[in-house]
């Protein structure tokens, strides 16, 4: 009887992982089967027009948006992580408040970020629909990821390193810049990669801030579309041509996400090796 129960439990867990894997497989296959035949160089790199809804401008916007959001968010997030690990007394009220705030930010759904971005950056700060408004909105959105992941990375730097550096007469700042950040670089980098993934896949927060103009942006005050927004809009009003673009964009998005995953795996393996040494 016990044996049967055990077997049942084990089979259930096999079944569960099979379902998980099957779900992934069918989504990826569905998008690829429908999308790959529609991929063409002109669709990816051609000039956007009503006859060729190319994604070139969306690729550019995605890259610009990701870079700018990281430029805004990484220094702030890293600074916060350093403060939390290296300076702040762990039990103080302010640390608790910071942690609470970070956790709250992490839990806020993207649609709320979108509403807030539209109300604050778009209307109150008069940025309208623009790359800048989109950048600032997603910068806040990825902040908790960057803070938490780099905090973990900094925490995992052995105290021995710090003590050694102090022992050699280095100040705190010098220790942080020369010893701690380089040792935690891998972890910090995976924080960056995770954030890139989040931004690339984002739609709801960008619709109300970045807007959805189908045009190569000429300044950061212009509205444009990221790939995910381009896919969303294409499923809405592009007719059959739009659906083809949607699938093709979906393939590109899946490829990007896969690359990001492989990269994180590589980083964590490298980090693992470093820890072993």
């Amino acid at each position: 009887m016990r044996k049967i129960k055990s077997t049942v439990l084990r089979v259930l867990s096999y079944l569960a992982i099979a379902i998980t894997f099957f779900a992934l497989l069918s989504i990826v296959l569905y998008i690829c089967v429908n999308g790959v035949p529609n991929l063409s160089l002109s669709l990816i790199f051609g000039k956007f027009s009503s006859d060729n809804p190319s994604m070139r401008f969306a690729i550019v916007t995605t890259v610009v948006l990701v870079i700018l959001a990281l430029v805004v968010s990484v220094p702030i997030g890293l600074g916060c992580a350093i403060y939390l690990t290296e300076y702040a007394p762990q039990t103080s009220k302010i640390v608790r408040a910071i942690r609470l705030a970070t956790e709250t930010l992490a839990g806020i759904p993207s649609i709320i970020y979108g509403l807030f971005g539209a109300l604050f950056f778009g209307t109150a700060l008069k940025m309208g629909y623009s790359i800048l408004s989109g950048v600032l909105t997603v910068a806040i959105m990825i902040l908790p990821t960057i803070i938490r992941t780099s905090e973990e990375a900094i925490k995992s730097v052995p105290d021995l390193y710090r003590e050694g550096s102090f022992g050699l007469g280095a100040g705190k700042l010098r220790t942080i810049v020369k010893i701690i950040i380089p040792s935690a670089a891998n972890g910090i980098f995976s924080a960056v990669i995770l954030s890139v993934g989040r931004i690339v896949g984002e739609t709801a927060a960008l619709l109300f801030t970045l807007g959805s103009v189908a045009k190569m942006p000429s300044s950061i005050m212009d509205s444009s579309r990221t790939l995910a927004v381009h896919m969303y809009i294409s499923t809405r009003d592009g007719g059959m041509a739009g659906r083809k673009v949607a699938f093709a964009t979906g393939v590109i998005l899946i490829v990007i996400v896969t690359l990001i995953n492989i990269f994180t795996l590589y980083l964590s393996k490298k980090a693992g090796k470093m820890n072993e040494n």
Binding site: S50, Y129, G211, A214, K215, I233, D237, G239
Partner: peptide
Amino acid sequence: TSVEKVIEKLKEEYIKLNPNVSIEITY
């Protein structure tokens, strides 16, 4: 959003005639 198809076309044609104008459309 219903006018997207036609207005995008109109925009292209207009810019051909007026290359110094840039047009931004939000749907």
